[in-house]
Amino acid sequence: MVAVAATEDVLIQRPSAFRRLLRRKGAVVGLVVVVVFVTIALLAPWLAPYDPIATNFLLVRKAPSALHWLGTDEIGRDLASRLIYGARASLQAGVISVMIAIAFGVPLGLLSGYSKGWVDSLMMRIVDAFLACPFLILAIAMAAFLGPSLTNAMIAIGLTQMPIFVRLIRGQVLAVTVEDYVEAARALGNPHLRIAVRHVLPNIVAPVLVQATLAIAQATLAEAALSFLGLGQQPPEPSWGSMLNVARQFISQAPWMAWWPGLAIATVVLAFNLLGDGLRDALDPKEV
């Protein structure tokens, strides 16, 4: 009885995952930076001082000034405005590609882990094959075959990330399906689909959330890389990767063109990595 009371005490005192997340300085910094960039992306039309695609040949490659805080590019476009609008492409690509990966990865992982047997073996061999292809090379190849555009880059990144989610969810499902409550649900005669969706899925959300946060960081980097190579966002629409690609050609004449987009990518990716690390610790059941 004393032991039960003590356990209840611990359970009552254990702070919520969000509170535990807020205790981690790195995660809080990450969360704040992510919120700031998402706000910038959402409010881009109101925040951007100029039209991001309006050219001005009198302002070609101007250094940062009071009129153009971050300078101008090779055809006189305002870099601050392009950077603000570029946040849309980068964050959109990061989030949507991970959503694609989850949309396919979760059902396939559930199917693989829940069905076991030859279905599981077959799916795991396919996952192994995808994971054997280095991430960026596969994404480049897919984007190349689909054709260069931001939408296709997001599809390519999403499909390339999907196997990671399949494997993660399958592992979690295998661990959860041996739990007593799943056995009980089975004994009560619940159909497989109901058990998978109502009893298994809610118990594997935490690791998926952590992986999704870290995957957004990777997807943002991948989108920037694809746009840098000319396979993502197409001109004249701005994206941080394509801005860097152009900046490379003017590195000695206008180095400021390269500073800001790279700094923006690094900051967002770092923020998602910090947030993902923090979430992993906060959602770890061993952490009290």
């Binding site: 490379r248 390269a258 990716v269």
Partner: peptide, 15 residues
């Protein structure tokens, strides 16, 4: 280490 995994290699190269 965190910078290593967050800074895009193509930007590091340009810098």
């Amino acid at each position: 280490a965190l910078s290593g995994i967050s800074v895009p290699s193509f930007w590091l190269g340009i810098m």
